[in-house]
Design a protein around this nucleic acid. Sequence first.
RNA 1: UCCGCAGUAGCUCAAUGGUAGAGCAGCCGGCUGUUAACCGGCGGGUUGUAGGUUCGAGUCCUACCUGCGGAGCCA
Length: 466
Amino acid sequence: MPEVSIKQALAGQPAENAQVTVKGWVRTRRDSKGGFSFITLNDGSCFDSIQVVAPGELPNYQSEVLRLTTGASVIATGKLVRSQGKGQAYEIQADQIQAVGFVDDPDTYPIQPKQHTFEYLREVAHLRPRTNTFGAVTRVRHTLSMAIHRFFHENGFYWIHTPIITCSDCEGAGAMFRVSTLDLANLPRTPEGKIDWSQDFFAREASLTVSGQLNVEAYCLAMSKVYTFGPTFRAEWSFTPRHLAEFWMIEPEVAFADLAADAALAESFLKYIFRAVLDERQDDMAFFAQRIDKDCIQRLESFVDSSFERMDYTDAIAALEKSGKNFEFPVKWGMDLQSEHERWLTEEYVKRPVVVMNYPKEIKAFYMRLNDDGKTVAAMDVLAPGIGEIIGGSQREDRLDVLDQRMAECGLNPANYQWYRDLRRYGSVPHAGFGLGFERTIMYVTGMQNVRDVIPFPRTPKHAEF
RNA sequence: UCCGCAGUAGCUCAAUGGUAGAGCAGCCGGCUGUUAACCGGCGGGUUGUAGGUUCGAGUCCUACCUGCGGAGCCA
């Protein structure tokens, strides 16, 4: 007898009137005094649950079926039939219900068939995937992941597994988590009284990565088109709906590419993965549109149908100055664009995604290629309506002398970047790439308002309970 | 780290300084196919913690804890 997912059963597979077995968790049980019960089962395979009709003649009807509560696990076998009721096309007329796991103390089972606050559900992060919202987020997250890998694979990119543990403070970006096996209660000291890292596991200070970019550049300058997609760690002391201490980042890098090619890649990439969600997760997106953010589907559709505007930073500043808007942060050439400025540019000025390019070098990282004007670097931000910055990228500085000069300006010691400098000594080429925060992308797609609700087990300051 | 808002039943929320309540969930009963069903009943509380003001504090004051939002920082 075929064992099917609830997704298959709801689609009438393998066939109407076929004998099938489904396995899942009870969402609700409704009893009819016609002497039978309706059990709604969900197994995560799709948004919808299937209705199992349990007749009172089942041998374990009184002893087990009537004791099933929300959250119990069940294996149900029976005939897949067209439903007499209105809520679903197919249901299962059960001739066998196996109660696999009951809920211990149903009175306090944390997930009830009702609306819970997201704040509460974070406290039961191990059970929240049993809710509609987190099931839908989980499937969308998976679909985006697969689409990302598929896009790069189909376009000749190699997935590079850059290291999680690093010894280089790559961009000087953000506070880092130390990786050490030293005995904290008895730290080895140098004669000067400083901690003697030479006795640590890696014989030097080591940390969790804040970006795979520098490592992936090395593979770019051999494999031509590469990307990383993995976890990243920032020990920043920040409490906001957009920050995590552990998050996932996508960073492609392309050899023989300039900033314009980088922007073109970002555009086709974003459109591809959003198209995939629209095509493959219609059930979940309909839920998000209904319950979370009514505009989320339309936002994606208009995104994939728009051509991105390209705009120089200098022109963006000029437009902002002429906007007549009274911004909280006054606009001036040389400043970094604040969130309010980004939103105005993309939502009101051009009304579609916009790539802002060539920022002042003072507000950007040392590895970005210095433009001929000597004042700006070949950096870009992709701004999208409804969110602001979604991608940041740049053409990298491929000239060793200019790189050294920029590192000096940024107060970095070239001795710490020997292998990175080597890439400019041995067959250097123009290359470019960008970074995309995966969780923020999921927020944009689903309309979810808090980054802690789009990753299974969020890590934030003082929080790593699960 | 700074600023603001909040904390009452398992969950979502009420309660003018004057007897702590409702809905949902749970349990019991009713209802001939229900759709987060419906109807009736029952149990459920150290009002975040510690002090203070007051005849009297869930309510006012102080400190702390926790959560959320904003700023900074960023993805």
